[in-house]
Amino acid sequence: MASRNQLVVPQANAALDQMKYEVASELGISLSQDGYYGNLATRDAGYIGGNITKRLVQIAEQQLAGQSR
């Protein structure tokens, strides 16, 4: 089944992919480089996704704080 999620900025795909590996590494979770995540526990996938979301929110808040000055 194809993913229905579409990026608003398609060029951001590489940056998000890199962030996924960085966050997984920080959490001590190893990800396969070939894109197969069948052996990844659901809990670990949730940790990675949750931390990516937190990081993206922090980046957005910093950008908004910089614009309001």
Rank of each mutant, 00 (worst) to 15 (best):
M1Q: 06
A2L: 12
A2I: 15
S3K: 10
S3G: 11
R4F: 09
R4P: 00
N5H: 15
N5M: 15
N5D: 11
N5V: 15
L7I: 03
L7D: 05
L7M: 09
V8Q: 12
V8D: 11
V8P: 03
V8Y: 09
V9F: 13
V9T: 14
V9D: 12
V9L: 09
V9E: 12
P10L: 04
Q11E: 15
Q11M: 10
Q11G: 12
A12G: 08
N13W: 07
A14G: 08
A15N: 07
L16W: 10
L16M: 11
L16E: 05
L16A: 04
L16C: 02
L16G: 01
L16Q: 09
D17S: 14
Q18F: 05
Q18L: 13
Y21I: 02
Y21C: 03
E22M: 08
V23N: 01
V23M: 00
S25W: 01
E26W: 04
L27Q: 01
G28K: 06
I29T: 00
I29L: 02
I29H: 00
I29F: 01
L31G: 02
L31C: 04
S32F: 06
Q33N: 11
Q33A: 15
D34L: 05
D34Y: 00
G35K: 05
G35Y: 01
G35I: 04
Y36A: 06
Y36P: 03
Y36E: 07
Y37Q: 02
Y37R: 05
Y37C: 03
Y37S: 01
G38R: 08
G38N: 06
G38L: 02
G38Q: 07
G38V: 03
N39V: 07
N39Q: 13
L40Q: 02
A41H: 09
A41E: 12
T42V: 11
T42L: 15
R43N: 13
R43Y: 14
R43P: 00
D44M: 06
D44P: 00
D44V: 03
D44R: 01
A45L: 05
A45F: 04
G46L: 10
G46N: 08
G46Y: 04
Y47F: 13
Y47L: 14
I48V: 06
I48E: 01
I48Q: 00
G49S: 14
G49I: 02
G49K: 08
G50V: 01
G50N: 04
G50H: 00
G50P: 03
G50M: 03
I52E: 05
I52Q: 04
T53Y: 09
T53K: 15
T53D: 11
T53R: 14
K54I: 10
R55V: 03
R55F: 10
R55N: 08
R55W: 06
L56Q: 08
V57H: 07
Q58N: 08
Q58K: 11
I59A: 11
I59M: 09
I59C: 02
A60M: 08
A60N: 01
A60L: 10
E61Q: 09
E61H: 09
E61N: 10
Q62N: 14
Q63M: 06
Q63R: 07
A65N: 07
G66F: 07
Q67K: 13
Q67G: 06
S68R: 14
S68K: 15
S68F: 14
S68A: 10
S68M: 12
R69W: 10
R69Y: 13
R69Q: 13
R69L: 09
